[in-house]
Computed example of a mutant assay.
Amino acid sequence: MERKAVAAYVKDHPFLFVIEDGRVAEIHPIGSKKDTCVVGEIYIGKVKKVLPNIQAAFIEIRPGMECYCALSDAKQGFFTCKAGKKPLCVGDELVVQVKKEAAGTKQPAVTANISLQGAYCILSLTDQALGVSAKIEKKKREEIRTWLSECADTSFGIIVRTNAAALTKEELLLDIRKQEQSFQTLLDKAKTRTCFTCLKKAGFPGSAALLGLNEETLTSLIVEDPNLYESFRSYLESERPKLLDRLMRYEDALLPLHKLYSLEKELERALSEKIWMKSGAYLVIQPTEALTVIDVNSGKAIAGKNEQYLNINLEAAKEAAHQIRLRNLSGIILIDFINLSGEDERKALLSAMRAAVASDSVKTDVIDITKLELMEITRRKANVPLSEAVRKAGTKK
């Protein structure tokens, strides 16, 4: 698979587009409005309310900005000021990290189990597990587990990411020790700072999008804007040096990068409700507060026989998987296919969908097809959906 990343301005805002085999697979707005909190930022917050009946607390991280926090995520936190003897009390000040950005009517969510994410590993404060990405080949995964035995004395939890598969033992352990030192420095800093201090900003706006890119499969990172190029170069020099040789500056003034790859049309399509497929059939994608519904319609496709319906459904499964990843949809997803008949068709469709979501770096589970012939899918929440991210970025329509 040929995978490249393209950073360009579309509608006066920078985006990072991940292109796989000539098709846009992911879209990441770079940066957001200044008045929003961003996933990964770390603050010293103050507990404003504790609600045992819903097992939640509300923690203020900026004056007037209260965030939801599950009690299970707060009681074992790093406290800078304790107001009472209970595990969590109103007035307590503790270090929290933005877990989810505000979406719709929902407030941002934070957790006291703060973590630092690097290209090769994730360190967490209260989760003491030592783990390795399941996407790493089994033999290599077991080898890395033996390497981690040298980190048994650590006070942090460690998860080794997929990118670490190409590292030597020395390189991985050096990266872990570097992360540990950064983490301890942050905690020491928290002891001397006042409430509402931002201990860690989101950093270079494009870094979050780059973290999920596999170094082994990324062929090029193309950037057009000179200032954006310098930002990427500085970030890669300090955090991802192995990607530096793939960073390229695009300088054709006659054919801008967004025109070369039709990025404006790709963005508009990723935000539209209706998606046409080659067969003439189409999908209607409708996110709601509780779940996302995808309806498959035969449209202009020639249908009538069971075999024709199955072919449309198989095409729709592949396109639905693509759109779920492209739009960063998460939570519960229901897909209403057309004219399912027989157990064999259901099995074929489930198998096709599971194969289609396998390339998604975000955990996606294809559950089953219900008695109402709705396919059930769940996808881990990883940041906000693309539509919400675009709105927060302040992109012009």
Rank of each mutant, 00 (worst) to 15 (best):
P385R: 03
G131F: 06
D225G: 02
P385I: 06
R379A: 04
T192C: 05
I114P: 00
I122R: 01
K305C: 08
K396D: 13
T168S: 15
A103M: 14
A102L: 09
A301S: 04
L186V: 04
G40E: 03
I144D: 02
I59D: 01
F204D: 12
E268L: 15
V98K: 00
A166F: 07
D368N: 13
P287H: 11
N306A: 14
E93L: 03
V390H: 01
E230L: 12
T364L: 02
R391F: 13
G394A: 11
Y9W: 14
S361P: 14
G77Q: 07
K138S: 09
K347N: 10
I144Y: 02
L88V: 15
V284M: 07
Y43I: 00
L116S: 09
P205G: 04
L310W: 02
I54W: 02
S351W: 06
K49L: 14
D73R: 10
L350V: 01
E142A: 10
E180N: 14
V95I: 08
G91H: 11
S220A: 15
V362T: 07
T197W: 06
M65A: 08
L329K: 04
E237R: 15
C67G: 05
G206P: 07
K138C: 08
S238P: 07
V366R: 01
S115C: 14
P14V: 04
C67W: 05
T168M: 11
E180T: 13
V110E: 02
K200C: 05
S115V: 08
K318R: 14
V284H: 07
L228E: 11
T105Y: 08
L257Q: 06
V296N: 00
P256S: 03
V18Y: 01
A290E: 06
D92P: 09
L260C: 06
G91M: 12
P63D: 11
R177L: 14
L187Q: 13
R380F: 02
D336A: 10
S361W: 05
T194N: 15
L116I: 15
I324P: 01
H28K: 08
E143F: 06
F183T: 12
A7T: 08
K46S: 11
E376G: 12
V132S: 01
Q107S: 08
E180W: 11
